[in-house]
């Protein structure tokens, strides 16, 4: 952040909150999120509707961006919509599209207390026994997310796939692979299988697209908020279920198939009860392969952000080394020989 940033931020916040004066007390890096830059923001607000202490998170565009992710303005609009629909999500407060304030666009949302770190949550859930209740809550919440009305003017930037969503994703991931410096044959193998076995187009839903352990907050064993809305958009609702259940998001607890937290059936049944639709369990396996392929593509993109020099980061660099495990899972689930 450049010289005079706190003053510029205070000025922006005063105007946004319609306050007499805003004093930034703390602005610290928050861990988590290789894609976005999150900071804890504490401020004292004098006057206006927000008068008092502000405990918030400032979410900024990262120096480089994944092609599939929304920018902050789009994510802010999505978060507003989700919050208004009653989904457990942080309350979005203000968007600053002006790069002159902090160097990059950002938005501010109210901070919600809770644990997001996947390994710690998986351990806590096992030791304290709240896993089944939590995955039932998560299933219920995902059903609410899928019901978010997305055909709204402020979400006009979202585009629905014109073909079967699975086929659209295969095409998208192939495009992403084409932009990488080196070939990824095991991922191509997976994409060929996904193309041959693609489910037909069904009713679309508003998908979160990053609904997994690590991207929600838990407080006292209960779901507090769903985070990271930067990939959300219309798609096949089973995509979100497959992403949540995929083996790559179980944080060292592979036997707990729902996000390393609880049982698969608890999650799926809770989703079904609240979504008002039956889930074809045999089809979820397809979307779990899609999940591994997608994570592999994203991991390769992350690694290239580092390797190309666009954004030097240890976390991005190490992401390249999650790929072999994903490849093995893709291959073993698509063997057919």
């Amino acid at each position: 952040m450049g010289e005079g940033a706190p003053e510029k931020l205070e000025k922006f916040l005063s105007q946004a909150a319609d306050a007499a004066r805003v004093r930034v007390v703390a602005l610290e890096a928050l861990s988590g999120g290789a894609v976005q830059d999150n900071r804890l923001l504490r401020a004292e607000i004098e006057g206006g509707a927000f008068a008092g202490k502000l405990d918030a998170v400032l979410r900024m565009d990262a120096p480089s961006r994944l092609p599939a992710s929304h920018d902050r303005a789009a994510e802010f609009a999505i978060l507003k919509r989700a919050h208004a629909a009653g989904v457990k999500a942080p309350e979005p407060l203000w968007l600053c599209a002006d790069s002159a304030v902090l160097g990059r666009p950002f938005f501010v949302m109210r901070r919600i207390e809770g644990e997001a770190f996947g390994h710690r949550l998986a351990k806590d859930a096992a030791e304290r026994g709240f896993g089944e209740r939590l995955v039932a809550e998560l299933g219920e919440e995902l059903a609410k997310i899928h019901a978010i009305p997305w055909a709204a003017p402020e979400l006009a930037f979202l585009t629905a796939p014109s073909q079967a969503p699975a086929r659209a994703l295969v095409a998208e991931y192939r495009d992403f692979l084409d932009d990488l410096a080196e070939p990824a044959p095991s991922v191509e193998w997976g994409l060929a299988w996904l193309e041959r076995n693609a489910p037909p187009r069904g009713p679309l839903a508003f998908c979160h697209r990053d609904f997994r352990t690590g991207n929600y907050l838990v407080k006292d064993g209960r779901l507090a908020a769903v985070l990271d809305w930067e990939f959300a958009g219309p798609g096949d609702p089973d995509e979100d279920l497959g992403w949540f259940l995929a083996k790559c998001w179980r944080f060292g607890r592979p036997e707990r198939e729902a996000g390393g937290i609880g049982a698969r059936e608890t999650f799926v049944a809770a989703y079904e009860r609240n979504a008002g639709r039956a889930v074809d369990r045999t089809r979820l396996g397809y979307w779990e392969v899609m999940a591994h392929v997608r994570w592999a593509v994203i991991a390769l993109q992350q690694a290239e952000r580092h390797a190309s020099g666009a954004e030097q980061s240890l976390e991005l660099a190490l992401t390249a080394h999650v790929v072999p495990e994903l490849e093995l899972e893709i291959l073993d689930r698509t063997r057919e020989t």
Binding site: P185, S186, W189, A320, H321, V322, V323, P324, E325, E327, L328, L331, D332, R335, T337
Partner: peptide, 19 residues
């Protein structure tokens, strides 16, 4: 079958280094 065998062997080999 041959492509699968090659890709799987290679993925295993990379995994020995990566994780």
């Amino acid at each position: 079958r041959a492509v699968f065998a090659h890709l799987r062997r290679t993925a295993l080999d990379r995994l020995r280094e990566s994780n």
